[in-house]
Amino acid sequence: MMQAYGQLSSHPHKNVTPMDTHLIQNEIVRKAFEAWQRADTAAWFSYFTPDATLLDDGHPRDFQKFSTEAIGRERFTRLDKVEADGTHLYGQFHSDTWGNFKTYFKFRLTPEGKIEQLEIGQADY
Rank of each mutant, 00 (worst) to 15 (best):
D40Y: 04
S46F: 03
R30K: 15
N26G: 02
K81S: 10
R78H: 11
A4N: 09
D51M: 03
A39S: 14
F101P: 06
H11M: 08
L8F: 10
E116S: 08
D51S: 10
L23S: 06
S95A: 08
V29H: 03
A52V: 14
L55V: 06
S95D: 07
T21H: 02
E116W: 07
M1W: 00
R73Y: 15
Q64I: 13
V16R: 04
A32P: 05
A84H: 10
W98D: 14
F76Q: 02
I28A: 15
R30I: 05
P60Y: 12
T49S: 12
G58S: 07
F48Q: 01
W44F: 15
M1R: 01
F33N: 02
K102N: 14
F48M: 06
Q25V: 03
Q92G: 07
A52K: 04
F76L: 14
T103R: 12
R78W: 05
V29Q: 04
S46C: 07
G86C: 07
Y47N: 02
F66I: 03
Y5H: 12
F101I: 06
T103M: 14
M19R: 00
E27I: 09
G86L: 08
T53I: 08
D20A: 09
K102T: 11
D57T: 10
T77C: 02
D80R: 04
G99N: 06
W44K: 06
L118M: 13
A43I: 04
A32Q: 15
E74M: 13
Q122K: 15
T87Q: 10
D56F: 11
E119Q: 14
Y90W: 11
A39L: 06
S9W: 10
A70T: 12
A84K: 13
D96F: 00
N26M: 06
D96T: 00
E34L: 11
L55H: 08
R75Y: 14
M1K: 02
R73G: 11
G91V: 04
L89S: 08
P18R: 07
L109N: 02
F76I: 02
D40R: 05
V82A: 03
E119Y: 10
D80L: 12
E116N: 03
L109W: 00
Q7F: 00
W98N: 13
I120T: 15
T68Q: 12
G99Q: 07
T49G: 06
M19W: 01
K31D: 13
L23T: 02
F93K: 01
D80E: 11
D85N: 15
M2C: 06
Y125P: 00
T77L: 05
E83I: 01
K102V: 04
L55D: 10
K65G: 09
F76D: 01
K114Q: 12
S9T: 10
D51C: 01
G121D: 09
R61S: 09
A35T: 07
K31M: 09
A84Q: 14
G58V: 05
E119I: 03
L79N: 05
S9L: 12
R75L: 05
Y125N: 00
P12E: 12
N100S: 13
Y5E: 10
A43Y: 00
H88T: 13
K106I: 08
S10L: 15
